[in-house]
């Protein structure tokens, strides 16, 4: 593996794809995947994720813009399987070919020894099925075979499109560990997925698309910053709400004696209760997770962060 270096930086700059009739699958998309990071590539169905990944890999010709890996377009990379591994769909196999032979063909094309095929098929847990024809593979097994194909050249960059599709809970757990393993090895990973919880656990950064456009990119901490909500239960909500408002925090009374406070961490709220002599029965903090963020951003409701179950109308003097 090449390790984390500029040769594995992915730069997408002003990328657009128009499939005709004025429908833009991707529209002026720009983002960067830093070397040695795991980046989640998120968006609802039809957001343009797969088209973007295919443009990055030279399978689809962009209408405008550029996509490079280590400063080179994929088409210009010599022996690309040793620099970039990709797993795009679980159906790119000849059904009458064995999984091992599929990988050995890639070994031959990349000038790699056949032992690489044996190694990666074992790495993804398909060693026992290596000599079975792909037509007998389940969708989850095909996904694993796709991951094995991506790893065949021991590349520093991995581009994975929905690798969790078709995996059962065991497979998803395995995939989580697999991502961690890849990240620990210092590979740059760009992974599109609908498994938001899995992405949250393994991704350093996320790129969120909607209708072909970039909605937001950054680390999960950056994107969820400012979404802290502290909930308190107190028998004296009125004076505490006033004290909180005086400290510049937003307060909403959800129910008698139940306050949601925004704009400050749980430590600050606890401190204000202490210095104002307020009795608290509960003090808890929460922050929007990736799922909250994703739905808010892709439904045009960012201002509603974090999403919660419907709450009663505010009753007391919140500054909200």
């Amino acid at each position: 593996m090449t390790g984390a270096s500029d040769s594995s930086r992915i730069v997408v700059n002003g990328l657009s794809k128009d499939f005709g009739r004025g429908i833009k699958a991707v529209d002026q998309l720009s983002f960067t995947v830093e070397p040695g990071s795991v980046t989640g590539f998120l968006g609802p169905n039809g957001a343009g994720k797969t088209t973007t990944l295919r443009m990055l890999l030279g399978l689809v010709n962009p209408s405008a813009g550029t996509a490079t890996i280590g400063g080179q377009a994929y088409r210009d990379i010599t022996n690309p399987l040793t620099r970039v591994g990709a797993s795009l769909e679980a159906s790119s196999y000849h059904p009458a070919r064995t999984g091992l032979n599929h990988l050995r063909i890639l070994c031959a094309a990349a000038g790699l020894p056949d032992s690489r095929a044996d190694a990666v098929i074992a790495q993804v847990g398909l060693g026992d099925a290596a000599k079975r024809k792909v037509r007998g593979y389940s969708l989850g097994m095909r996904q694993r075979l796709g991951l094995a194909a991506a790893l065949i050249g021991d590349p520093g960059v991995l581009i994975l499109d929905e690798p969790a599709n078709g995996l059962d809970p065991d497979g998803i757990r395995w995939l989580r560990g697999f991502f961690r393993h890849l990240a620990a090895e210092g590979r740059s990973v760009l992974v599109s997925s609908h498994q938001l919880n899995e992405i949250q656990e393994v991704a350093d950064r996320v790129v969120i698309l909607d209708r072909g456009r970039l909605v937001r990119s950054g680390s999960i901490d950056e994107l969820t910053a400012g979404t802290d909500v502290v909930r308190v239960h107190t028998p004296t909500p009125q004076p505490f709400a006033a004290a909180l408002a005086a400290a510049g925090l937003g307060v909403v009374e959800l129910a008698p004696g139940v306050l949601d406070i925004r704009g400050g961490p749980v430590e600050l709220v606890g401190h204000l209760a202490f210095v104002n002599g307020i009795e608290l029965h509960q003090l808890s903090g929460s922050r929007a997770n990736l799922e909250d963020l994703f739905f808010a951003l892709t439904q045009g409701a960012h201002q509603a962060l974090p999403q919660r179950p419907p709450a009663p109308q505010p009753r007391v003097g919140g500054v909200q």
Partner: peptide, 10 residues
């Protein structure tokens, strides 16, 4: 069989 995808990737 869409093996054109891995072929072009290689």
């Amino acid at each position: 069989y869409q093996t054109i995808t891995p072929t072009v990737l290689a």
